[in-house]
Write a protein that binds this DNA or RNA. Structure first.
Length: 843
RNA sequence: GCCCGGGUGGCGGAACAGGCAGACGCGCCGGUCUCAAAAACCGGUUCCUUCACGGGAGUGCGGGUUCGAUCCCCGCCCCGGGCACCA
């Protein structure tokens, strides 16, 4: 009598047994190929959700399979534990952030164990542990030594709800805080920065080496870095009397070739020069009106492209270096202080924004680039000076064409990145009036936060020595526990924390009270896993060399820029420090899709959350694991379906019954398949086909189809049992099928596979310590193949031939099969695709 | 506007690398078992047409290359995402 499938009994049983036996502890082993499989570590925000289940199940299957296939697999887990949600929860529930955080970690840890994930728990990293964050402070000091830390005053993003500044990367498209979605404000504040821009070029260029990353993510990063090539051009400023003065204003442009079309010059409202230029003149009032209006607007309002542009003449002029023309200087609200130099040369014929501005204020729009088929081109081809002062166009033209009204450059072909750009740049360089230049959208990373629950910045403000780093031997700067967070206290409210002495001069000084952005903690945790308990060094160089880089990283697309860009930056700095010897931390990246329900992402606010705990209670962890892998390819979104989960449970029950019955029927039979008859050969072939298919699918993360093929093997085995009478069945073959199916299932449904292997089939050691089944190509090859026969592209018949039959014989059989369709026609051509089809062309 | 994805039955999805479109699952329909139901098992299930054999159409739309296109090329439409007065 066989037992029925009961996940609620077998799952906790095996979880305890594996933990007792230390099944998942791993150490360096130079004799075996290493594989570092990493999933993005969670934030301990509460119970786990389906997104966690999906992320960690994908990783777990691959980790388990690679282990069986003979790799030394590093598969660690930890918690990204500093950050604002802990503070907010603490304020709400009147607990300390630490208490809340560690309690949630325990809860999530229990859930991960209940899911049967194969983590090496000895390597766990928790970023708010002193043993971890001290090394974060150490990194800060090392960056400082290398000139990568800067404290400067600049306009920054301030979230009024989170009461802290944010990095540019943490402000979403609409000017919202990434965490609470409040609209951020601009404030001029002195803050700490990591100089990520020093690595801008390398961060961009190395994207091409990341062949294992999704295009989407690379495109997003390239977009974010936003490199544009062009030129800096110096314009000489005229004094109030209109005479050229000593000083120059520099602009950045991607189109120096259009310089002859520059008929006005623009300053951003925030540009420091604006006030200076108009002070005490008749132009002051209208100009300041524009400045004040811009200051009142939020960055979101200001970014609306369709809004009418506003500006005012400052009364001053600059000299255009290519033709010495006097060009009026305006202030305009569409010029951004944050990009380039905050000053722009306006070329209304070539830039739509300048075009609209010129039309509104009646400024001239002379053409300087004409498309080759433009009828006006003939008249302007020879003209060196200005013949046409105003185009009659509806909009600006920024495409390629021929330069006109452009002095010595007239007649030259040009366009973005074209020869005109290089020629004008060279001309400017020769005269010292400009130079080739590159501009980036990427800004330095603002890392200081005015919040308590984070890693303290190890710096000291000394009234006489200035900014002084905390000496390495004094690390860590401990985050004090006795802060009353419910009163909104931060380190700045704690004299016992900030009152200190200067390490340089010994005088009274003040400790920095800002903490570091949580993203500094997550930028290097993958390296710490290599040597998580080291108290002498951040990690042992040899251990990091053995495990790193991460072979496969799995996580959500929401980190496409933030975490993944910062981690790449850290890795490059570590390489320059000699701590590691590679440039990129994550060789392959899989961005898993989201779990949706009724078309929406599962969320508390939508009220459509399905709790993993509930599903485990009903169907067991194995069914949930297999279901979530089967429903959709890992990188696509997944629509939750209860019926689908029920179907998965049904299949697992079918497998359970199959293996149990075979085990009872074929107890003690030989472990080698005889496979003599036709049905036996077919089943044996199917088994090997599936072994090959599952192995290959896992290597490509096609986990949904790998499960489909195991279902096919299950169906084939049932089919065999249904069609062959009990006494005639090949016991050895059936037992081999049952064993191999169990082995294939082990990574997916580890508990059920273990129970079947160790108890039902009666093996001596854990299924997870068995070698992965080997694919026998010969056994998988069919002796006979069915081929389709096409006549003029349409399937008109089928033939069954021996697998290695030569083409002539195949064609012969094919033509006979479709003779009726060839009557009265002449066969012009035949094409044979081995084992698949014959294509006949006839007329 | 620029840059990435994506569009296949009632649904989720499959189709290595240009070779039989729709694997596998869900749902639905029919059957076996049962007093009955559930469970389980067996069979069917792209659409149109035909009693049937068969025939025709079909992977967002329109062209092209090819013996052959879901796949490659050109031109569009729609959906999702990122960036965006970035000079």
């Amino acid at each position: 009598m066989t037992r029925s499938y009961d996940p609620h009994v077998i799952e906790p049983k095996w979880q305890n047994a594996w933990e007792r036996d230390g099944l998942y502890s791993v150490a360096e082993d130079p004799t075996r190929p290493k594989y570092y499989l990493l999933e993005m570590f969670p934030y301990p925000s509460g119970d786990i959700h389906m997104g966690h289940v999906r992320n960690y199940t994908i990783g777990d299957v691959v980790a388990r399979q690679l282990t069986m296939a003979g790799h030394q697999v590093l598969h660690p887990i930890g918690w990204d534990a500093f950050g604002l949600p802990a503070e907010n929860a603490a304020i709400k529930s009147n607990t300390h952030p630490a208490e809340w955080t560690y309690a949630n970690i325990e809860k999530q840890k229990a859930s991960f164990k209940r899911m049967g994930f194969s983590y090496d728990w000895d390597r766990t990293v928790i970023t708010c542990d002193e043993g971890y964050y001290r090394w974060g402070q150490w990194i800060f000091l090392k960056f400082w030594e290398r000139g990568l830390v800067e404290r400067k005053s600049s306009p920054v993003n301030w979230c009024p709800s989170c009461k802290t500044v944010l990095a540019n990367e943490q402000v979403l498209g609409g000017g919202e805080c990434w965490r609470c979605k409040s609209i951020v404000e601009k404030r001029e504040l002195e803050q700490w920065y990591f100089k990520i821009t020093e690595y801008a070029d390398e961060l961009l260029d190395d994207l091409t080496t990341l062949t294992g990353w999704p295009e989407r993510v690379k495109a997003m990063q390239a977009n974010w870095i936003g490199r544009s090539e062009g030129a800096e051009v110096d314009f000489t400023l005229c004094d109030a009397a209109g005479e050229p003065a000593e000083s120059t204003i520099t602009v950045f442009t991607t189109r120096p070739d259009t310089l002859f079309g520059c008929t006005f010059f623009l300053l951003a409202p925030e540009h420091p020069l604006v006030r200076e230029l108009v002070e005490g003149t008749e132009y002051a009032a209208p100009v300041m009106e524009v400045v004040d209006a811009a200051a009142k607007e939020t960055s979101v309002e200001r970014a609306l492209g369709e809004r009418e542009k506003r500006g005012a003449f400052t009364g001053r002029y600059v000299i255009n270096p290519v033709n010495n023309e006097k060009v009026p200087v305006w202030v305009a609200d569409y010029v951004l202080m944050e990009y380039g130099t905050g000053a722009v040369m306006a070329v209304p014929c070539g830039d739509q924004r300048d075009f609209e501005f010129a039309r509104k204020y009646g400024l001239p729009i002379p053409p300087v680039v004409l498309p080759e088929d433009d009828p006006a081109l003939e008249a302007l081809r020879e003209a060196r000076g200005r013949v046409i002062d105003n185009v009659t166009w509806e909009c600006a033209y920024s495409g390629p064409g021929i330069m006109v009204q452009s002095g010595a450059f007239t007649g030259m072909p040009t366009g973005a990145g074209g020869p005109g750009v290089a020629a004008v740049t060279r001309w400017l360089e020769d005269r010292g009036k400009g130079r080739f230049a590159i501009n980036y959208r990427l800004r330095d990373w603002l890392i200081s936060r005015q919040r308590y629950w984070g890693n303290p910045i190890p710096a000291i403000h000394c009234p006489s020595c200035g900014l002084v780093p905390v000496p390495e031997c004094e690390l860590p700067v401990r985050l004090p526990r006795d802060v009353d967070i419910t009163k909104g206290e931060t380190l700045a409210d704690h004299p016992t924390f900030y009152e200190t002495v200067c390490p340089t001069c010994g005088g009274p000084a003040r400790r920095e009270t800002d903490t570091m952005d949580t993203f500094t903690c997550s930028s290097w945790y993958y390296l710490r896993y290599c040597d998580a308990r080291n108290s002498e060094a951040i990690w042992d160089v040899d251990k990091a060399a053995y495990w790193m880089p991460v072979d496969q990283y799995i996580g959500g697309i929401e980190h496409a820029i933030l975490h993944l860009l910062y981690s790449r930056f850290f890795t490059k700095v570590f390489r320059d420090m000699g701590l590691i010897s590679f440039a990129e931390p994550f060789t392959n990246l899989l961005t898993q899709g989201m779990v949706r329900k009724d078309g929406d992402v599962m969320s508390k606010s939508k009220g459509n959350v399905v709790a993993p705990e509930d599903m485990i209670a009903e169907f067991g962890a194995d069914a949930l694991r297999a279901y979530i892998l089967f429903m959709s390819p890992p990188d696509k979104d997944l629509e939750w379906s209860r019926e689908g989960l029920e179907g998965m449970y049904r299949w697992l029950s079918r497998v359970w019954r199959l293996v149990s019955e075979i085990s009872a029927e074929c107890a003690g039979g030989p472990m080698m398949a005889a496979a003599e008859g036709g049905a036996e050969k077919a089943l044996n072939r199917e088994m090997h086909r599936v072994i090959g298919k599952v192995t290959e699918d896992i290597s490509r993360f096609q986990l949904n189809t790998s499960i489909a093929s195991m279902m096919e093997l299950t169906n084939a085995a049932y089919d065999y049992r249904n069609k062959v009478a009990a006494g005639d069945r090949d016991a050895a073959l059936m037992r081999t099928v049952a064993e191999n199916l169990t082995l294939l299932l082990a990574p997916y449904v580890p508990h059920m596979a273990e129970e079947l292997w160790s108890e039902v089939l009666g093996a001596k050691s854990s299924v997870h310590r068995q070698p992965w089944p080997t694919f026998d190509a010969q056994a998988a090859a069919a002796e006979e193949v069915e081929m389709a026969v096409q006549v003029n592209g349409k399937v008109r018949g089928r033939i069954t031939v021996v697998a290695d039959l030569d083409d002539a014989a195949v064609i012969d059989a094919a033509l006979k099969q479709v003779a009726a369709h060839l009557e009265g026609k002449e066969v012009l051509k035949t094409v044979v695709v081995a084992g698949k089809l014959v294509s006949v062309v006839a007329r």
